[in-house]
Amino acid sequence: MSVDQATVRRIAHLARIAVRDEEVPHLQEELNAILSFVEELSAVDVSGVEPMTSVIPMSLPLRKDEVSGHAGADVVTRNAPGAEDHFFTVPKVVE
């Protein structure tokens, strides 16, 4: 399995990563190197093997339905690039 340059651009766009044209060939090479490395795993027959979800046998911890831990609007918005009246503000997104 390998990716072409269009796929590299598409993946970058989906991840909202700005990629300059001259970076694309290099990224393509890196991604293909990773893919061929991972491809070795497909030599192993895993039919009938349950996917492992945890390295130790444990189940999903459940929480009680109780309210706590509100950070406060000041804290929540403190590091935001833009905030007003306790709202986050972002460049206008209109559908």
Binding site: V76, G82, E84, D85, F87, F88, T89, V90, P91, K92, V93, V94
Partner: peptide, 9 residues
């Protein structure tokens, strides 16, 4: 606002 969207989480 004319230029921004406000977000409430």
């Amino acid at each position: 606002s004319p230029t921004e969207s406000f977000v409430d989480l």
